[in-house]
Design a protein around this nucleic acid. Structure first.
Lengths: 191, 191
DNA sequence: TTTTATCTACCTACTACTTGGTTGGTAAAT
DNA sequence: ATTTACCAACCAAGTAGTAGGTAGATAAAA
């Protein structure tokens, strides 16, 4: 089944951005990957900035869905948190890529203000979800040592992102696991 | 007092890299900042890759010094850890820049293998220092809830780096503080 | 149903720089 | 005389983008 060109471009751009950062890929890369002329990309995305907006919005929608799915399929606090940790681990693609939000953050000066705002919303949303998850883990007793869920959430997201960064730099998933090890140990028995 | 051109170039490049990432600055930026012709930079740094090596080595030497100075001037575990947190906060420059290691990590595919190796050594060194610091904090009783210093260290560095990333994306130091808040709360009374 | 008009999505050719780098040269310091 | 550190001029490839065009699909009109 063939996908439409716009989606193919978004897929290609997302992969490139998550692997090389916003300043590390060009329209020429996408053109070669998708198989159309570089100038044609402007029909779908008039500027690179517009492309970054579309990428970030799509990425945020996708993780919103992922978090919603976790809530549906994982009843306990610890299972939800474990699922999120695994989501961030999965986004590493074996060490070859990062979460889009992370890869965009270091080149934020190259991005339009809309995207900076989206990045902020993205992190707030994830921290909000984490806060709920720590609250659940506290009340159902499946996450150990939770006294202030909001503060736990505020620490856990940067931990996940920092652990991603370390693993990406060395293309080594073990480094991600080293970073989140203590967090995992607090989970009762996620399944 | 005038500094030598090579040092001026390193300073300029470091600032640019920590602000915009490796792919986000060019020799033309440095030339304009330092006030020499772009082509002249090649006398000091034949390739951009060579420049990245010099940057990373200098940065690693500087933090080695900083950690050593912390050990000398801070006797307790909590005071040392607080000083490192403040060091990472300081590297943000009010939200305008990142630690070099962080900013290089997302564009690691553009960097020579030597630098990837240096980044790994850098992180190992900091984690080693953190391990010692958690051990000290455990034995002198100034860092609360330390059971496994090495795991604490392995979690704390990604936390600091992730918190930096968040604060950098929004140019807002409060976000750094939100991330490290729980960690700070475990420190007895750093001074 | 057929024809015409419009839209979509691609193309070529081009623009104006910009990138990291090479080359040959010169001025000043040693 | 030699070395250091700069210069101008240049290179080839690359960057994001503009402009005019066409082929095929789709919608509207006849």
């Amino acid at each position: 089944m063939r996908i439409d060109t716009k989606t193919a471009l978004l897929n290609s751009a997302e992969q490139a951005a998550r692997r090389r950062g916003f300043d590390g890929f060009s329209y020429a890369d996408l053109a070669k990957d998708v198989g159309i002329r570089k100038a044609s990309i402007h029909h779908h995305f008039p500027t690179k900035a517009a492309l970054s907006v579309a990428l970030m919005q799509r990425y945020a929608a996708e993780i919103r869905q992922a978090l919603s799915a976790i809530d549906t399929t994982h009843p306990s606090g610890c299972a939800r948190l474990a699922a999120l940790i695994d989501h961030y681990r999965g986004a590493l693609n074996g060490g070859k890529s990062l979460c889009l939000c992370v890869s965009f953050s270091t080149s934020r000066d190259s991005l339009p203000a809309d995207v900076i705002t989206e990045i902020r919303s993205f992190r707030q949303m994830v921290i909000g979800w984490l806060t709920n998850t720590f609250e659940l883990g506290q009340s159902d007793g499946t996450i150990a040592e939770v006294t202030e869920p909001a503060k736990e959430a505020a620490a856990s997201l940067p931990l996940l992102e920092g652990a991603q960064l370390t693993a990406r730099a060395q293309e080594n998933l073990d480094l991600f696991e080293n970073g989140v090890q203590l967090l995992r140990q607090r989970l009762a028995n996620p399944s």
